[in-house]
Design a protein around this nucleic acid. Structure first.
Length: 864
RNA sequence: GCGAGGGUGGCGAAAUUGGCAAACGCACUGGACUUAGGAUCCAGCUCCGCCUGAGGCGGAUUGGGGGUUCAAGUCCCCCCUCUCGCACCA
């Protein structure tokens, strides 16, 4: 054995052995209980960062623990490999996105391997490979055939100069991030998935995800945003049909005095045509439309509108209502038109005041009378209906249903459910993504690519264009294709690619049979492994990725490909990795190496002025508070890094980085290493203690501690993934070993045997966390099999039992004394001992005892 | 504004069902070993006060205030504060 702990040596040794023995390779085994542990796969951005290390370290502990518990554990890893950063890098460094991506994958794969995670690397997949996305295209065609994928016009952020679509994040203050051109909204034909068909089901099942954090479930519910209400038809005054409106407040319909429509609403320009308002409306609509989304949803966005020059009729009051187009009305929600009830909606109230519109109160609160003339804000609470014809005197909550019924009866509206959730737009006018398998033919129209012709391969010989424009439309070898239906040679391909969230919506199924070439996955394999028992990843995917995955799973089920509805049984969202920031007034954020410490305190290397220690924030390059896992691995090894990540905080909480904390973790591993080294020789051939023989004193205490530790660690990992307390429990066990003062008792046969048990327990319990270190020490103790294949230890209940327990004595709730008593002492004995205690007697000083409460095995409280 | 989650020593954090607040670690202090110590080992370490002293004694303390209880970090009410999410959703 090496005298000093040398992580570099130990880690490379065991990684080689694991690989040679293919220890993490799994296959379906009906005889064993399966456990599918999945961590969110990374985007191959270049290097592994601390966030990945933490996420994957957490997952690896669970995977290894479950394996030791006897489960057949599927623990795969792969690459979310399509996406825009590859295109940006391509332009910046003149490398092809494919080359850049594959290089990054190689780098990151070796970094993950260096960390010793227990992945079955035979299942590795990359979503940018045709073998992967061909099945996604296959499913797209199937969805198209079923009407689940469809095409419609929709607005996108468009930069005219770059001739490209921009993602929301690429629009900075309304300007193109690259060229500074004003970003416009452009209407393009886009492909959509009909996720709204499943809105109700997705919402309903939110209640049936007990293994998910409530926070995530709530976020999903809000995102789906179901609201019950009614659609009401407001006839146009000129008799040309009606405007449908969605409202959740049909109880206030008698108070609707004007109408607001989204600037994008097709009726707006039609109604204004030929009136005095026409030019003003046109100008307004144009102006609002050119505003980007960020601006239109910003905090200080002022509400404004323009009269369109037409009226509609309130079907209940028969009063005429002026029609406005207003910037706050959203085309995407409801019907794009709002009945405005200024007395009972704050936004409508402000609008009415601004433009001098009529305010009619139709709900009066109890014991107060509202007067429109003096109101300063809308009244939005409950009350009794007034000025509401047949509904006068009704409580407004009851009126909701009554009026909804009346609407249907009179055929002026109907009950409706409205969702905030929109259909999922998947078209991206981008190169580095999976091609949408559609051909447009002048004769046949929209034609899906037949299964036999799949995959539609993304041509890797495309040359990237300046400005980020997709090269696909101009690449004739790709864009031009004969029509699959009629053979027309002049048909053209869809040149948009799919949103990368599509790939990540089914990768967990693909892992079950990653090389399967007869379909998306082997049904038998998926039936065995799915659903994922434990999914682990960042909270940033709480909505989109998880919702899309849930949706896709439902689609697969309806297509008969899957048998379950929910892909992830349990979800853990780990916290972020944070670190303090350093800031100089002149030079902004600084790297630690840009800061010099002298007698002035911390100063900036560039200008010498004082450096402030800023707040603790999520590690990010821009804040210059990142730490590089590679450098740490080099210095301390993977095990230390893993140990620190798991010890510093429970997984769901943010982790504050501490260089000294890493040192501490390293020190602990070295300390145990030396302990084993010192004792290895004399316990080499000793058997572990079986508990049959009675021992006393320190030995008994140590034996007890072993089993208490097993119990605590098992509990901490099993029920709540609190590895930090599990580790501290093991540390206590180590401390107990080192606290044995008379070391010669460890040389006796029983002592050596118990010592061996203690050291083995430490090693085995820590093996999921620091596996290389554990393997090496396990071997040092003379064991031949891998510690990974050792069964997780069970504790002996009888070993845990204490002979003596400490009883705390309180007088009037304050601790005044404590004493030991045999563990089997009954309540009476404990009470008697407490009352006889010298200190207690002195304290009570003869005062009458009113009451004595005895909590067995814990405390006595004497009330005087 | 709405919703969720936090606030415990100098720091990260512990505290099954209400039952010794601060386990474990970091930092710090003192000591040992040493040519050296940023290695290692031993000891101390919430705050305040008291006793001449080794050592002991007392009080306070889980963001603030109130309540329930023999007993509250934990349960109830009010308030402060931080973080995250949603936010013209009709």
């Amino acid at each position: 054995m090496q005298k000093e702990y040398d992580p570099e040596f130990v880690e490379s040794k065991w990684q080689r052995i694991w690989q040679d023995r293919q220890l993490f390779r799994v296959k379906e085994d009906p005889a064993k209980k399966k456990y599918y542990l999945l961590e969110m796969f990374p985007y191959p951005s270049g290097n592994i960062h601390m966030g990945h290390v933490r996420n994957y370290a957490i997952g690896d502990v669970v995977a290894r623990y479950k394996r030791m518990q006897g489960c057949n554990v599927l623990h795969p890893m792969g690459w979310d490999a399509f996406g825009m950063p590859a295109e940006n890098a391509a332009l910046a460094n003149n490398v092809h996105p494919a080359k850049w991506t594959y290089q990054n994958i190689d780098t990151m794969r070796s970094q993950l391997k260096r960390l010793g995670f227990s992945y079955d690397w035979n299942r590795e997949l990359a979503t940018c490979k045709p073998e992967y996305y061909r099945w996604e295209q296959w499913l797209f065609v199937k969805m198209f055939d079923q009407g689940m994928a469809y095409r419609k016009k929709s607005f996108v952020n468009w930069c005219e100069k770059c001739q490209t679509v921009l993602a929301n994040e690429q629009v900075e203050a309304g300007l193109c991030w690259r060229c500074g051109e004003i970003v416009a909204q452009k209407e393009l034909d886009q492909w959509f998935f009909r996720i709204t068909d499943y809105a109700d089901d997705l919402l309903e099942y939110c209640e049936r995800l007990p293994g998910w954090p409530e926070k995530v479930v709530t976020m999903q519910k809000n995102w789906i945003g179901k609201s019950l209400g009614a659609e009401i038809y407001f006839p146009l005054k000129n008799g040309d049909g009606h405007i449908p409106v969605f409202t959740t407040r049909q109880d206030t319909v008698f108070g609707a005095t004007f109408m607001c429509m989204a600037p994008e609403h097709p009726l707006v320009l039609k109604l204004a045509a030929g009136t005095d308002q026409e030019t003003e409306v046109q100008a307004f609509v144009e102006r609002i439309r050119s505003q980007d989304k960020a601006k239109r949803t910003s905090d200080d966005y002022e509400k404004e509108g323009v009269f369109v020059g037409a009226f509609c009729i309130n079907p209940f009051t028969k009063q005429q209502m002026p029609i406005f187009t207003a910037n706050f009305a959203l085309m995407e929600y409801g019907t794009g038109a709002v009945m405005a009830v200024p007395a009972h909606d704050q936004r409508d109230f402000e609008f009415a005041r601004k433009y001098g519109l009529e305010i009619v109160v139709v709900i009066q609160p109890n014991g107060k009378t509202l007067d429109p003339a003096t109101m300063t804000e809308a009244y939005v609470d409950e009350g009794i209906l007034v000025r509401s014809g047949p509904f006068d005197g009704l409580e407004n909550l009851k009126a909701l249903d009554a009026i909804a019924g009346y609407l249907e009866e009179k055929k002026v509206g109907k009950r409706t459910v409205n969702f905030r959730l929109r259909d999922w737009g998947i078209s991206r006018q981008r190169y580095w993504g999976a091609p949408i398998p559609i051909v447009y033919c002048e004769k046949c129209g929209v034609v899906p690519v037949p299964e036999k012709q799949l995959p539609v391969i993304l041509p890797e010989d495309a040359k990237m264009l300046e400005g980020g424009k997709s090269p696909l439309p101009e690449l004739e070898s790709f864009a031009k294709t004969p029509c699959p239906k009629c053979g027309n040679p002049d048909a053209c391909r869809e040149t948009d690619t799919m949103d990368t969230f599509v790939e990540s919506s089914w990768y967990f199924e693909r892992y079950c049979s990653p090389d399967y070439d007869q379909g998306m996955f082997d049904k038998k394999a998926v039936e065995y492994w799915m659903p994922v028992d434990q999914y682990i990843g960042g909270i940033e995917h709480a909505i989109l990725h998880l919702l899309y995955s849930r949706y896709f799973t439902r689609v697969l089920k309806d297509f008969g490909l899957a048998t379950y509805k929910e892909p992830f049984t349990r979800l853990l969202t780990q916290g972020m990795v944070c670190k303090e920031t350093l800031k100089c007034a002149d030079h902004g954020f600084l790297f630690p190496e840009e800061v010099v410490e002298n007698d002035q305190g911390l100063t900036c290397k560039h200008c010498g002025s004082r450096v402030e220690i800023g707040r603790i924030e999520k590690m990010s390059k821009s804040k210059k508070n990142v730490v590089d896992p590679n450098a740490l691995i080099e210095k301390y090894g993977a095990d230390t890094l893993r140990l620190f990540c798991l010890f510093a905080a429970p997984p769901e909480r943010d982790l504050d980085w501490s260089d000294q904390g890493v040192e501490g973790a390293y020190r602990f591993l070295k300390r145990v290493w030396r302990l084993v080294e010192r004792h290895a020789a004399h316990i080499q051939d000793i058997k572990t203690f079986d508990g049959e023989k009675e021992v006393t004193g320190d030995l008994k205490a140590l034996y007890r501690k072993i089993h208490q530790t097993i119990k605590r660690v098992t509990n901490d990992i099993e029920t709540r993934f609190h590895f930090n307390t599990a580790i501290s429990a093991v540390m206590e066990l180590v401390n107990t070993v080192q606290a044995v003062k008379k070391e010669d008792i460890l040389l006796t046969p029983d002592g050596a045997s118990i010592l061996r048990s203690a050291l083995e327990t430490v090693i085995v319990l820590l093996s999921p966390i620091v596996p290389h270190w554990a393997e090496e020490l396990w071997e040092v103790l003379g064991n031949s099999e891998s510690v990974l294949e050792v069964a997780w230890p069970a504790y002996r209940e009888e070993a845990i039992v204490e002979d003596e327990i400490l009883i705390v004595v309180q007088i009037n709730g304050k601790v005044r004394s404590r004493f030991n008593i045999t563990a089997d002492a009954d309540e009476e004995a404990i009470k008697a001992a407490a009352l006889a205690d010298d200190r207690v007697v002195a304290r009570i000083a003869g005062r009458p005892v009113k009451k004595v409460i005895v909590v067995k095995k814990k405390l006595v409280n004497i009330v005087v």
